[in-house]
């Protein structure tokens, strides 16, 4: 483990590379549409279930059904509204040695994973995402995953290739 070439001198903090806010790349604007469509689909399902209950159950207590369905609708609308605000904040940044992902509206979050710690990267595409040419890229380290949503397919593919290549490169350098 002892490495003769290894030094551990104190470093001047101001000379360290900084993660700059303005270097973040926003995600594809289509993501908002996909997200809203997802919310609408969910509402349709809720409405469908409520209708099914009202029709199929003999003598239903309509107030409870409406209350539950209304609760779902309200939550979905709030979530959709938050998504509209959040989408401007969702962005990513690739540097030479790491990848950062920024998201959140009430709690704003910036996660950064060094490429050396990446175990694998996975790309996912739902049916609606495919329609809008979007994909989600999950980057898996030994800690929790980072999932970058709303990348367009080309960007996601390129990013995945880059992450895997950088991770591989860095491992080989060791």
């Amino acid at each position: 483990m002892a490495d003769a070439s290894f030094t551990n001198d104190p470093i001047d903090v101001s000379t360290l590379p900084q993660l700059m806010d303005e270097d973040f790349v926003p995600i594809d604007p289509n993501f908002l549409r996909v997200s809203i469509i997802g919310h609408v689909l969910f509402l349709v399902i809720v409405a469908g279930i409520a209708a099914a209950v009202l029709v199929l159950v003999p003598d239903p207590d309509t107030r409870i059904v409406y209350a539950i369905a209304g609760g779902f609708v309200a939550l979905t609308l709030i979530s959709a509204a938050l998504k509209v605000i959040e989408v401007r904040n969702i962005a990513y940044q690739v540097r030479e040695h790491d990848l950062s992902y920024r998201n959140g509206v009430i709690v704003k979050r910036v996660q950064t994973v060094p490429f050396v710690r990446v175990q694998h990267a996975r790309m996912r595409q739902g049916p609606v995402q495919r329609l809008f040419n979007l994909a989600t890229l999950s980057i898996n380290s030994a800690g929790p995953d980072i999932a970058i949503t709303g990348l367009n397919t080309e960007a996601a593919t390129a990013l995945r290739a880059l992450v895997v290549e950088r991770a591989g490169d860095l491992v080989e350098e060791q």
Binding site: V110, A142, G143
Partner: peptide
């Protein structure tokens, strides 16, 4: 040894220019 770093700010922290930092390890 860190696997990733997260800096997050809740609404409360943002108003006061504060933040939470999490060092994620294996």
């Amino acid at each position: 040894k860190i696997n990733s770093v997260t800096v997050h700010q809740s609404l409360f922290e943002r108003k006061r220019d504060l933040a939470t930092i999490s060092f994620v390890l294996a």
